[in-house]
Design a protein around this nucleic acid. Structure first.
Lengths: 155, 155
DNA sequence: CAAATATAGTTGCAAATGTAACTAATTTGC
DNA sequence: GCAAATTAGTTACATTTGCAACTATATTTG
């Protein structure tokens, strides 16, 4: 009797990591275009602005934790925003290493202009799902996030 | 009566494009580590190998279409694989511009070693979902893919 | 309280990536 | 059947990214 060693099939098109990557890139590209075209911002600058708006006085390290950016990426995004005076920085009085970050008035203005556009873009995507489906998706992604990175909360 | 202009809330943590990006990165990182650590392959080299295994004699352009890689990325991944003799290339007799790509025996050997590991990694993720949930996820991602990129099939 | 260790953030350098220009082969349209 | 336009794939250059080393401040420990 001949031994048959079947190679298990791997079809890229149905391989979850591949699909996730392609979908995420397609979605990101659309909104990155939006931020860049309209406001000259990178995705990372936008993320920094978003958490700074949410938590004025946040530090770069905390931004990194919340946004899953590494500290170099945060540092560079912050530098770009300071350069354009969209962000303001004060040294912490308790800890001279930390810098507290705040949106400047100009930064807040841009932030408030972007928010509705970003939400509209998200809504455009979610429009193809029912309320129930959108909730399911969030729940399933939550589970996957936990499986992919058990030790740390991803968001 | 004072006019109140409420800024709509945007919480990064619940913003779909952000979540997708973070989840996709977490998943990709795990499997990229696998390909790299064990076999010295990049994700793009792995993708090229996967479609070459599936469709021997495929061209670089077709690989790009199937994997959503741009042609420069394909060209570089192919160059790296040729360099290591994991891939073989013949000119097409019908069209002198096209190059037909095949896994070499060594390439096939590596491919067959990776497949079970990649599938195991995928299974490890999908383990946290029921069969039903996994099917739902695939369906929801399909819908989003269509919404994100209406003109072209993403996979 | 001084030395060692840890943390916040930046900088420099190498590798990866994207864009545009290019070569070579093919197809189109007159 | 030949000039113009198109397509496959590579190369060159600029930009982005990731990692390690660095500076400066804070904390720990003996």
């Amino acid at each position: 009797m001949r031994k048959v060693t079947a190679t298990p099939a791997l079809n890229l098109r149905s391989f979850l990591p591949f699909r996730l990557s392609v979908l995420s890139n397609a979605v990101s590209r659309r909104i990155a275009d939006l931020y860049d075209r309209e406001f000259g911002l990178t995705i990372w600058q936008w993320r920094v602005m978003a958490v700074s708006a949410d938590s004025p006085g946040i530090s770069a390290t905390e931004i990194g934790q919340r946004t899953q950016m590494d500290k170099v990426a945060v540092s560079r995004a912050v530098a770009g925003l300071l350069e354009r005076s969209l962000l303001e920085r004060k040294a912490s009085t308790q800890d001279g290493r930390r810098a507290l970050l705040f949106l400047s008035p100009a930064g807040r203005e841009i932030y408030e202009a972007i928010v509705p556009l970003a939400l509209a873009e998200e809504a455009r995507l979610l429009d193809v799902l029912s309320t129930r489906e959108a909730a399911d998706l969030a729940r399933l992604m939550e589970k996957l996030a936990h499986a992919a990175s058990p030790d740390q909360a991803l968001w």
